[in-house]
Design a binder for these strands. Structure first.
Lengths: 209, 209
DNA sequence: GTCTATAAATTGATAGAC
DNA sequence: GTCTATCAATTTATAGAC
């Protein structure tokens, strides 16, 4: 099994359930026994569709990257809008896209973090490539604004892009925990958080004396 | 084994090696067999010191929280400094403290992310409490600045604190991956990144016309 | 494509000697 | 406190019928 469209009902069920389980419990946390039970198929059937556990994980990860890419590409690109509106829209849309497919996001985040830890990290490369696309998108928009004199010249667009991506990634990953902390009420309102962040970035934190 | 100071040589070796392995490979990714081998002790000796795998993990997590707390508390608090200098110092010091004990940070980050996924999450509560302390520290400083008219009134200090923490947490977690991406050269220079972020937050991204 | 049955290795954990 | 030897259960994976 390596093609992107699963053919049989079983293969679909396996991929779907495996995505959920790998995303929530990690590679080592999922056993083929439990996966088979929860997917409603026999264990042997999993090995019929996927040569081994790692191949299954790789297929799951590849699907996650694709669906994340699909969601991202569906972000509307408004033409007649100001620079500030555009980056705000991209920023808020990015967080929304993370939340639209939580399991894909979790899988990719997991791999991002593993990138530095284990050598010979083949699966992480696909994920890095996916994020690279996002970063390039942000940086492109920011650089254009900078050339138009709408963004401070001494700001590195890549650093600003990282700051924007950071806040969304961390918020998605930790919002449940944030919700349990003191005074972080906005944890329930993702878009409110994203807008608040952009307001700070655009206007700065210093009062206009 | 539940006290904080390991008594025997073996116990120390076990805790130290377990911290590394759990941090890098997660709870399910570590087997007692491998842990015993890598720690240079017998598997039975692990079960002599810790009643079971989960108890060991809990002990490791507790130690990680303590050492993270120790590092954090050692951040110097300058008296005669401006508001901007103070928050920049706190921000940069926070990232430095994350990097000073990478395994503790990884363990805690892992738990932060699990908080929303699995029910009855006892270990995560300690970690959340640890982060809560950090957030309160940030928020306190920001609120003081706000009352002194040095921070915009319509900014939620908790949201700004989250933005600051976010960027550092994500940077730490993903810097290896960031390093592999297009144009993100600052990924090698943590303190440079943290300073750049604070520069953006303080001065905003809009040029002074 | 799907299943039951089974194999071989590894898992978390214990018994008991020193 | 540390070890060797061992246990039952679970793990990944395969064989072979339908």
């Amino acid at each position: 099994m390596s093609q992107n469209r699963p053919d049989s009902l079983g293969a679909r069920a396996i991929l779907q359930t495996a995505t959920q389980m790998f995303a929530r419990e990690g590679y080592a946390g999922v056993s083929m026994n439990r996966l088979a039970t929860e997917a409603g198929v026999s264990k042997a059937n999993i090995f019929h569709h996927f040569s081994n556990k790692e191949a299954l994980y790789l297929a799951v990860l590849e699907m996650a990257c694709e669906s994340a890419s699909d969601v991202m590409d569906s972000t509307p690109i408004p033409e007649n809008s100001t620079f500030e509106e555009r980056i705000t829209l991209l920023h808020c849309g990015f967080l929304a896209s993370l939340e639209q497919n939580p399991d894909s996001t979790r899988l990719m985040t997991r791999e991002l973090g593993r990138a530095g830890l284990s050598a010979a990290n083949v699966p992480a490369e696909k994920v890095i490539a996916q994020f690279d696309i996002r970063f390039i998108r942000f940086i492109k928009l920011l650089t254009a604004g900078q050339q138009a004199g709408l963004l401070r010249e001494d700001i590195d667009p890549a650093l600003l892009a990282t700051l924007m991506v950071s806040s969304n990634m961390f918020f998605f990953q930790s919002k449940s925990a944030l919700n349990a902390m003191t005074g972080l009420d906005f944890a329930k309102d993702s878009q409110g958080f994203a807008r608040g962040v952009m307001d700070i970035l655009i206007h700065g934190i210093v009062p206009k004396s």
